[in-house]
Computed example of a mutant assay.
Amino acid sequence: MVAQHSPIRAKLDRAGIMLSGLCLVHCIASIVVVSALGIGAEFLLAPAFHRVGLAIALVVAAVAIGWGALTHRRPVPFVTAMMGLTFMGGALAMPHGAGEAVLTVIGVTLVAIGHLLNLRRAD
């Protein structure tokens, strides 16, 4: 039997997907703008910006993915999102550059997939 999901949880999952997409755009745009134009590095690459983004991702994922895991009892969305959050956290420990960008892109992609799986309640 398929568990029914709450409209609030569905909105949180959609918000999580949107935030992951925005994070991905920010990451790529930051590299392009800072590398090509040499402007905005102090804001676009600021560690505080990334810490706040991770904190928001943690809260949205904890509520939406956690709620979904408790409701539909399927571990794949939860595990996928948590792996993504781990990659995002690992990116914070790296110096700015290609390594950080790769970890961030992998992380936000996995978090978005976790939210999508949570919406679909699929393994």
Rank of each mutant, 00 (worst) to 15 (best):
M1V: 09
M1T: 08
V2W: 10
V2S: 11
H5A: 06
H5Y: 13
S6K: 11
P7T: 11
I8V: 08
R9D: 06
A10M: 10
D13C: 15
R14E: 05
A15G: 04
A15H: 00
A15Q: 01
I17S: 06
L19V: 11
L19T: 09
S20D: 01
L22K: 04
L22R: 03
L24E: 07
L24Y: 09
V25I: 14
V25K: 06
V25C: 09
I28A: 13
I31Y: 07
V32R: 07
V33H: 08
V33L: 15
V33E: 02
V34R: 06
V34E: 04
S35K: 08
S35D: 15
S35M: 08
S35A: 14
A36L: 15
A36I: 07
L37F: 10
L37W: 12
G38W: 10
I39F: 02
I39E: 06
G40N: 11
A41Y: 00
A41V: 11
A41N: 06
E42T: 13
E42F: 04
L44E: 04
L44T: 08
L44V: 10
L45D: 11
P47W: 14
P47C: 03
H50A: 14
V52L: 15
G53C: 08
G53T: 04
G53A: 13
A57W: 02
A57S: 12
L58P: 00
V60N: 06
A61N: 05
A61Y: 01
A62I: 04
A62Y: 13
A62E: 03
A62L: 14
V63F: 09
V63Y: 11
V63E: 03
V63I: 15
V63C: 04
A64G: 04
I65Y: 15
G66E: 05
G66V: 05
G66P: 10
W67G: 01
A69I: 03
A69Q: 05
A69C: 10
H72P: 04
R74W: 00
R74F: 00
P75F: 15
V76Q: 07
F78L: 15
F78Q: 03
F78S: 04
V79R: 03
V79K: 01
V79F: 10
V79N: 03
T80M: 06
A81V: 09
M83D: 02
M83K: 00
L85T: 04
T86R: 03
T86Q: 05
M88S: 07
M88D: 01
G89L: 13
G89K: 05
G89S: 13
G90N: 12
A91G: 15
L92G: 10
L92P: 02
M94S: 06
M94L: 15
H96S: 13
G97R: 09
G97I: 12
G99K: 11
G99D: 15
G99Q: 14
G99Y: 13
A101W: 13
V102E: 04
T104E: 11
T104W: 01
I106E: 05
I106Q: 04
V108R: 02
T109M: 05
L110F: 09
V111H: 02
V111M: 07
A112I: 01
I113L: 15
I113G: 01
I113D: 00
H115S: 06
H115E: 02
H115D: 01
L116I: 11
L117K: 12
L117N: 03
L119W: 10
R120Y: 02
D123T: 08
